[in-house]
Simulated assay, not measured.
Amino acid sequence: MRIGILTGSGTYALPGLDVRSADLVRTLHGSALVTTGDLAGVEVLHVSRHRDGHERISSQVTHRANIAALRECGADAILGVTVCGACDPDLPLGSLIVFDDLHFLTNRLPDGSICTLHTVPGAPGRGHWIFEDPYAPPLRAALLDAARAAGHEVRDGGCYGHVDGPRFNTKAEIRTLRSVGVTAVSQTGGPETVLAGEAEIPYALLGYATDYANGVAQEATPVETLIRLIEASTATFASTLADAVTRIDPASLAPTGTHFRWD
């Protein structure tokens, strides 16, 4: 079993990963750097969205290449982690969320193109991803159990809201997202969810609340708090992921939803 792990702001290398190789994997959608190693005895394929030194800000992340590279490397499942802004005032900062729904109405990549792996007319496999829930239940369960075992405060379920970066959102924009039930927002998880679904790789997303989005709290979260919690998220994600990968039963893994294909 090979588990893909996608990390974001604050986590550029995966703590505890016994690295065997780091390779630039070339795909039809570009190249991605994939680090292969063992985490808690499980083979892991790690991709840092932003790369070392936060080389790529959110509007420059190569989502298609990242997911395509993990598929090329034989990932049986993908766990994504993201620091995020809380839209729910009852969500404590520094706590985790294992999302179970997605708000990503634009369905577009940072360059404005449609978020899909089906980019060539007539290509085999083209079609529609059809699903009830976007995140794989066995992976969600592994993340929840791992977070609890590590003693982290974690919420079971919540709607992830994808927003375009690199700027943060206005109070009016956050009010709109709150009105449809978005729990927390960040700037990278939407495309990953969709592309992993199209690639037929089970995927789950774990969030860590670093701040309250604009207008959610009476007083804005200090930037110093945001930075401190981004730094703290690395250890929380690492301990959760190291336990979660050991809890995944290969026999439970299956593509999320189904595909209506035109060939």
Rank of each mutant, 00 (worst) to 15 (best):
D164P: 00
V42F: 11
T225R: 07
T225W: 00
I57C: 05
A242K: 04
S58F: 12
A32H: 08
W129Q: 01
L177P: 01
A251W: 05
H162A: 05
R49P: 02
E55H: 08
Y12M: 10
L177H: 00
I130Y: 14
I3H: 00
E192V: 09
L144T: 02
R228P: 04
F168W: 03
I130K: 15
D23T: 14
V34P: 02
G257P: 14
I230P: 06
V47N: 06
L241W: 00
V120R: 15
I114N: 13
V182W: 07
D111K: 10
A172Y: 02
A220F: 03
E132Q: 14
G41M: 12
I230K: 12
G30M: 12
A244K: 05
A238H: 06
V81A: 00
R71S: 10
C159S: 00
L45M: 06
E153D: 12
Y208K: 10
I97R: 03
P137F: 08
E224R: 09
E55T: 08
L143Q: 05
E132M: 13
G257V: 13
T27G: 10
L195N: 04
D100T: 07
A242P: 03
G30Y: 09
S252W: 08
M1C: 11
M1N: 14
A184Y: 00
R126P: 09
Q218V: 06
R2L: 15
E198Y: 10
D145W: 07
G165S: 08
P222G: 01
V154C: 00
T240R: 02
F168K: 04
P110L: 09
T119M: 14
C87M: 08
G112W: 08
H162M: 11
A150R: 06
H103D: 14
V19D: 04
A32S: 15
R155I: 04
T183I: 11
L144V: 02
G151H: 00
G165Y: 10
A235M: 06
G74I: 11
G112D: 08
H259V: 01
Y135A: 01
G53F: 12
L24G: 07
R49F: 07
A69G: 11
H152M: 12
P110W: 11
R167S: 00
H259S: 05
V25T: 12
H29A: 13
S239M: 06
P15L: 03
R261E: 13
P138C: 13
N169S: 15
L91H: 10
L39I: 06
T170L: 04
L144D: 03
P124D: 14
I248V: 12
A77Q: 05
H152G: 11
P250H: 08
R49Y: 07
V154I: 10
R20N: 14
D76A: 15
A150F: 04
A32W: 04
Q218M: 00
T119C: 10
S58L: 14
N107G: 07
T7D: 04
E153L: 10
G8F: 02
D90L: 13
E192I: 03
D263T: 15
A86R: 07
A32Q: 05
V216W: 05
